[in-house]
Each structure stands twice: as C-alpha cells, then as structure tokens.
Design a binder for these strands. Structure first.
Lengths: 166, 166
DNA sequence: CCTCTGGTTTACGTCAACGTAAGACTATCG
DNA sequence: CGATAGTCTTACGTTGACGTAAACCAGAGG
C-alpha cells in the first residue's frame, strides 16, 4: 500500500466537464440538465469550490440513458427515475461486492434490481413485437398501393404509345 | 341499377354511435374525441339533426390508429395528422380510381402518399432496430448480474452447509 | 308532456418537461 | 487586474394533450 498519489480511492483524476460541455456533448440544454438534477434524476459528480457543477463521464452516460428511455421506450421522467435507481443499485453493489459484511441484504437488493431489469426487458420485447406487427401492416399496404400505382402507370404508358402511333 | 333501397351510395346503413360509445370502445375520453376534432384530426362522419356527433366504424378505426401512432411511434398529434392525411388520401383515391377524369393528377397524389407511407416504414424500421440494440444490451446485463446473484447464492449455501456440519 | 340519460359549447385548470430572462457570481486568459 | 465567457439561482412563461366544471340542449321511454 505505498502511496501512488494523493488520492486514496482509485479515481484516475477523470476530466470533469462544465454544464455547457455536457449539454453540447449530449444534445440537451443546460436547463434540462438542471431540471434533471432538480427532480433527483442526475446529480453531478461534484462541484467546484465556487459552486459550479462538474460532471463526470458516467453522468454523461446517464444523460444519454435518460434520452434513450424517453425516445425508445416512451417513459416519462418518473418511470425513468425508477429504472435508473435500479440500475445504479446494481453498479453500486458491484463496488462493494466483497466489502459488504451483510451478504443476506446484498442478495435481496440484487434480486430486486434484477427483477426491475427483467420487467424492463419485457416491456422492450413487447414494444418490439407490437412495432413489428405495425410494420408488417405498413409493408402490406405499401405493396398494395405500389401495385396500384404501377397499374396506373402502365395504363398511362399504353395511352401515350397509342397516341404516338396515330 | 335497380333501386335496392333509399340510398344512392352503397352505405349499408352502418350503425353510427354516439361519442360515449366510441369513448368506451376505444378507451379514450369524450374530451379527447372532441379535442381530436378541434385540431382537425378526426371529424365524425355526420351529426344528428340536433347537432350530436355520429361516428362510424371507420372513425373508430382512426381513433385506434391515432393511439397506435402515439404509443408505438411516439408521434405527437401534428405528426399524426400528416400521416393520417396521407393515408386517407390513399383510401379516397381507392374510391374514385376509375371515376377520375384526370389520371395524371391521380398518379401524382398516389405517388406522394406512397412516399409518406414509405417514410413511416423507415421510421418504424429504425425504431425497431434501435430497440433491438437496446434490448440486446439489457439481455447481456441481465445475464451478467444473474450470474453474480447465483455466485452469491452459492457462497451462501456453502456457508450454510458448513455451519450444518460443525 | 315529463323525465332521464347522454350530449353540446365555452372556458378555465392542470401537468410534465422544459424555455427564457434577469441579475449576480466564477473562472480563465492576457 | 480587468475583460470576457461561462455558470449560478430564482422565477415566471410556454406548449401539448388533455381534465373538469357549468349551463344549456336532444332523444327515447313511459
């Protein structure tokens, strides 16, 4: 355990970004980031002595995750908060793993989070299934109407040819 | 073309429903139906002499379509309005088909609507693709964490067995 | 005709998810 | 050290998609 640096924990002095940089990288507005913090969805890793938000790359990943859950799953921020909560309990368990004295509680938390993850998988699967049905219907109708267009086109061409020949 | 009934057009005197029945059948509120009408998304087939809305089954299908586009594609009502517009142009063309004198214009309209339909297909496909990626990631993470849980369970069982043996 | 039940218009309310603006403070660079 | 760009908090505004309430009308049944 010889000192390798001033840090006790293994944070490899990750570059922390200001709110503007994060907004630019994720495509959301600064207001949105502050709003996420306001409702307890995303708290920046830490703050500068002057009080400015400093985000780490994990925070950025979380912003992307939030947008993903919004656009793909159509969740509102409250539902997303629950998903995120389960997911971060999973990765926080990852941190302890060996350190925890109470493996009973460990297993219970893990099991709960797993269940939440599984429900999310179910939701995703049924959404995919529904969309595939939706698409199949679209495909059929598209093909049908395209044939109609081709018929009209054929009639038109035939008429044009007729006119040419006279 | 002997008269079979009082109607000239072939409307087989479809049963028209009031707004309450439609709301019940589709699961949306009466307010929502009136709102859809207000923004030009769904106009009931006709009205009773007293001014009450009378919906036909096609109207009901449209309500379902609207909800589908909302929940599956995540469209807002303005986007949905465009999709519906293209789709109903297609079925109105179906009605004329032979009756129209201007086949030039016919083809143009059909082509445009087909293009809109194709864009919708593209959107659906890319949404499905994105969701499949999303799900694959979920599956992987789920499996990983389930293995972790099983490990913990194994350790726990072993400890229990040890205790039993002492 | 009267009474329900269902429907109509008009209009204000609500909620999520931000947008926008003001005024003060912080960080960085020359 | 001053200028400039970035960020802070506070607070009110906006937009879509309806909810809700009031007061008045319509249609069917006894």
């Amino acid at each position: 355990m010889h000192a390798d640096g001033p840090d006790e924990t293994q944070e490899r002095e990750e570059p922390l970004r200001g709110i503007g940089a994060v907004a630019a990288q994720t495509g959301v507005s600064e207001r949105t980031l502050r709003y996420y913090e306001e409702i307890g969805l995303l708290t920046p890793r830490d703050h500068s002595p002057g009080g400015m938000r400093r985000y780490c790359s994990e925070d950025i990943a979380r912003v992307r995750r939030i947008r993903e859950l919004q656009t793909l799953m159509g969740f509102n921020l409250e539902e997303i908060r629950r998903v995120i909560a389960a997911e971060s309990r999973l990765s926080s368990l990852r941190a302890d793993f060996r350190a925890s004295s109470d493996s009973e509680h460990q297993r219970e938390v893990l099991d709960e989070a797993l269940q939440a993850l599984d429900e999310l998988r179910d939701a995703a699967r049924s959404k995919i299934a529904a969309l595939q049905g939706f698409l199949a219907d679209l495909d059929e109708r598209f093909a049908r109407h395209r044939r109609r267009l081709e018929e009209l086109q054929a009639v038109h061409d035939a008429e044009a040819k007729n006119e040419q020949e006279t």
